[in-house]
Design a protein around this nucleic acid. Structure first.
Lengths: 219, 219
DNA sequence: AAGTTTCTTGGTCATTTGACCAAGAACCAC
DNA sequence: GTGGTTCTTGGTCAAATGACCAAGAAACTT
């Protein structure tokens, strides 16, 4: 099939990137449901027919896009974490990479986070599997840190992951282009909130007691 | 105009709720852009024409829906916080209320969080103003706590709010119907993560030093 | 019960939308 | 350069969509 890996193939992959970039941009603005293939084609600098030649359906576009996003996120995470051996430092680096990715201006990640519900059937299954890989990456980081004694005892690591994901992913929502805080500053601040909590040193003791007492869980 | 506040008016408000509930349900599943007014009408148990009689456009529906969501959220928050005087306890109660609302099964909140980009022009401005009220509610809680000495010095309260919003709002995304954790348990866990952090007691000191050293902020 | 207001019915209408394609242009390997 | 492959052009087409409405039914007021 693709036995030819010369300039033609290179151009094809390049064009594919351009198309997905355009799709990401359009989907981000209007949402998958609100976007039209014509808009995507225009953003990619081609006619709708040409887009159709590359992507037979709007849904294929979304699937490829989200797949690319998740693969990129995982690659960035792994690369960021790789140089460190200390589990806590690896966590910190992973957090930094995730936040920098979301704020890099790459629209992929936004679509990945906010157009999940537009997937259906097989596409959804496929993405769930990919997402599980990324979650596994984080669970490994967390588990390593916990095993090395970094984690406060009794915390639920899966809940911690979701807690952290939420805090991190939300930045894609609120951070404006003109925000004075750099992505790195936000990451550092978040890291300190996560590690140390928000309570003042002198309040930890007394407060801890009251919180511990109420343990039955309401509702 | 509406000088008659008898049963007719009561039924109207009731019907309005039903319609908005239906819209919330449909918008949540397919997204605003992907949903059709016909679907909303059917979910509300009426013909498209009847829906049009109440709401002249799809966008009106979204605006009213998100307005209701934000008003409800603010009302729930205020009610939850009201009985306590201690700033930290008020924060804890607010967090519980927010999470319980998101997990109550009310589709409004999901739409509020994830269809923001479908608003345009005046509707967007209006919602921004309402959102600012809710953010103000939280900023007051945070500021009171900080002024009473509960907060670790040097933390950015606005960043903390976004951090917390992210962690809380994300639960609407990941929590499944069959999750063993009750909303109350999730809220309690999140509260402890926020207050105390995730680090083990014995690691706080040494770790703190390394974290403090790197202060320039990357990038 | 009559008169008035509120709401429903069952449809129309102009656009938009996703998908598709035949014919030709551009590109490439040989 | 030539022959085959890849991609674009400029359009079509059926279905879906948001908005709309005239006529009648239901509900309410007095």
């Amino acid at each position: 099939m693709t036995k030819n890996l010369g300039p033609a193939a290179a151009r094809r992959t390049f064009d594919e990137e351009v198309v997905l970039d355009a799709a990401a941009h359009v989907f981000r603005r209007h949402g998958f449901g609100g976007a039209t293939v014509r808009e995507v084609a225009q953003a990619a600098g081609m006619l709708p027919g040409s887009l159709h030649y590359r992507y037979p359906s709007k849904e294929t576009l979304l699937l490829d896009l989200m797949e690319r996003a998740l693969n990129r996120l995982l690659a960035l995470g792994r690369a960021a974490v790789e140089p460190a051996r200390d589990p806590a430092e690896r966590l910190r680096l992973g957090l930094g990479a995730h936040i920098e990715a979301l704020l890099s201006g790459d629209d992929d990640f936004y679509v990945l986070l906010y157009d999940w519900r537009s997937l259906e059937g097989g596409a959804m299954q496929r993405m769930l599997r990919l997402r599980a890989r990324y979650e596994g990456f984080w669970d490994d980081l967390l588990l390593d840190a916990a095993r090395a004694g970094w984690a406060r005892p009794g915390i639920d690591l899966e809940l911690v992951r979701q807690f952290g994901f939420g805090a991190m992913n939300w930045v894609a929502q609120w951070r404006q282009e003109n925000d004075p805080r750099t992505p790195g500053e936000i990451a550092d601040a978040f890291w300190s909130y996560l590690a140390f909590g928000l309570l003042a040193e002198d309040k930890r003791r007394t407060f801890g007691q009251t919180a511990k007492k109420r343990k039955g869980g309401r509702r």
